[in-house]
């Protein structure tokens, strides 16, 4: 029996981007408002899980052609690299730096190296959870 899930699939196509953009927003907001790498990463995962529910595993894999294990590795490297990078500037491991920059379009923004670290967290969270869900779902 083939189920009719046109409404779900159509809705998902729209909602996916809303959740995804929201997750990006939450991620960037993390330093000053509730949010951050963990929540952002999990929301992105939730968006992808929604895709998986609406479509099937193969379609999603075609739409998002990443190997999520590599996403995990990139995330870990980013986090470790940020932490280790401080050694190059002759300050203790894990010292973060920040400053205000005048960016076009955004105006004066405060940029932190902690953000890069958080991006590593984000990538690891997304990578691991999606890896888990994909492998469990793909196991027959």
């Amino acid at each position: 029996m083939k189920t009719n899930d046109v409404i779900l699939q159509t809705g998902t196509k729209v909602v996916f981007f809303i959740i995804f953009l929201f997750s990006i927003h939450i991620f960037f907001a993390g330093h000053f408002a509730p949010g951050g790498g963990f929540v952002g990463g999990l929301l992105t995962t939730a968006a992808i899980v929604l895709l998986l529910l609406a479509f099937d595993l193969k379609t999603v894999q075609k739409a998002l052609p990443f190997n999520f294990m590599i996403v995990v590795a990139v995330g870990l490297l980013l986090a470790l690299g940020t932490a280790a990078g401080s050694i190059l500037f002759d300050v203790p491991f894990f010292t973060h730096a920040y400053d205000d920059f005048n960016l076009p379009l955004f105006g004066v923004s405060s940029l932190h190296t902690a953000m890069i670290f958080d991006a590593g967290v984000y990538l690891v969270v997304v990578g691991s959870t999606i890896t888990m869900i994909q492998t469990i779902g793909g196991d027959s």
């Binding site: 963990f38 969270v125 959870t129 888990m132 492998t135 469990i136």
Partner: peptide, 17 residues
């Protein structure tokens, strides 16, 4: 708790499998 939540998710997934 925030770190614990995420870890417990990882562990739950691991245990299920």
């Amino acid at each position: 708790i925030l770190t614990a939540i995420v870890i417990s998710f990882g562990v739950t997934a691991f245990i299920i499998v």
